[in-house]
Amino acid sequence: MSQIFHRSTNTMSRATIFGAVFVVAALGWMAMEIQRSPYVTYAGVRKPQPVPFSHQHHVSGLGIDCRYCHTSVETSSFAGIPPTKTCMNCHSQIWTNAQLLEPVRASYRSGESLQWTRVNQLPDFVFFNHSIHINKGVGCNTCHGPVDQMPLMYQQESLQMEWCLDCHRAPAKNLRPRDQVFNMRYQQPTSTNPVIVDGQTFMDQMSLGSALVKKYGVRSVGDITSCNTCHR
C-alpha cells in the first residue's frame, strides 16, 4: 500500500498542533475582550427612556448644577432621581405644550411615577456610596464621564471591579478640590494651568492628589481595597 499523503503532511500536522496553542490563546483573549466590551457592560449604550432627557441641554445649555436635581448626592449613598415635581418647577412654565414632555405632565397630574431606565447599574452585592466619593474629592465626571455633553444619558465606564480598583489602588490620580467636584469643566493641574489649594500651587495631578489624600483623610490603600469596603 503506497503512501496516501505526501511527506509534507507531517510538517503540516505539527504546525497545526503548534498553531492550536495560538488559537486557544486567541479564544481566551476574545473571551476577555467580550467580557469587557459594551456588549456585556452596556458602556456607551443609550437606553430607551420615557422622556429623551438631555443632560447636555440642562447642564451645558442652561447651567443647572447637578445638585439641583440630584439633591441627595452629597449626603446619601444614592444620588437621587428627581421627582416629577422637580421637572415641573420649570416645565410648568416652559415648553408647557411640548408633546415630548407629555409623560412628565401626565405623571404630575396622576401622581404616578415616571419609570426611568436605570443607566449606571451596579450589581446588588456592591455597596457603592456617592456621598463618600463626593466628600473625598472625586469629581462627578471622573466616573460618569462628560455628562454635560451627553444628549442622551449613557454609562461612560465599564463599572467593572477592575475599573473600581484602578482608582482605589491609587486614589491620588483622580482627586480634585471639593469645590470643583461638580464642575464638569474641571481640568487636572498642568504647569500652564495650576490648581491652588489653601494657597499652595500644584502643577501636576500626583502632587495635588497626594496632598488631597492627606487633607481629606482618605483611608489607606489597604483599607479601601479591602473586600468588605464594597462587598458587605
Partner: peptide, 16 residues
C-alpha cells in the same frame, strides 16, 4: 478669573 468658568454652581477660579 483663570481659565474657563466652572459649570453649574461652581464659582470661577480667581487668579491668585
Amino acid at each position: 478669573f483663570r481659565g474657563q468658568p466652572g459649570s453649574g454652581a461652581t464659582l470661577p477660579v480667581v487668579d491668585s
